[in-house]
């Protein structure tokens, strides 16, 4: 399963589908398509920002996060799990 994921490009849900408000160390994200509010914290906002609308593959995301946010200790399995959750929640789309 991991191998088949390698080429998948993930991108943030289109900006007009989300409403994002920062509340101290948390970020409240309202997802318009589901009407569900997600209260998220690091590394989720970082993942969303890094993916952006252009999107990127998983390995590139990992590289970007470790450079931009010093998330060097984030292991791949944890990142996979977060990404899957974000896809299920609709905050991240599979391009």
């Amino acid at each position: 399963m991991d191998d088949s994921r390698g080429d998948i490009v993930y991108r943030m849900a289109r900006p007009e589908t989300l409403k994002i408000t920062h509340l101290d160390s948390f970020t409240a994200v309202f997802h318009r398509a589901s009407g569900i509010t997600h209260l998220v914290t690091s590394p989720v906002p970082e993942i969303l920002a890094a993916l952006g609308e252009a999107g990127m593959r998983r390995v590139d995301l990992m590289a970007r996060l470790s450079v931009d946010y010093l998330l060097g200790d984030a292991d791949e399995a944890a990142l996979d799990a977060r990404l899957d959750e974000l896809v299920a929640a609709g905050l991240v789309a599979v391009a």
């Binding site: 409403k19 408000t21 509340l23 160390s25 409240a28 318009r32 009407g35 509010t37 209260l39």
Partner: peptide, 24 residues
């Protein structure tokens, strides 16, 4: 903290989910 206030008030609201984006 704002995030704690937000969570506590969503829990104190009976119609937050039903109000959708207006509630947010």
């Amino acid at each position: 903290a704002q995030s704690e206030v937000f969570v506590r008030l969503t829990q104190a609201s009976t119609n937050y989910v039903a109000m959708g984006e207006r509630g947010f």
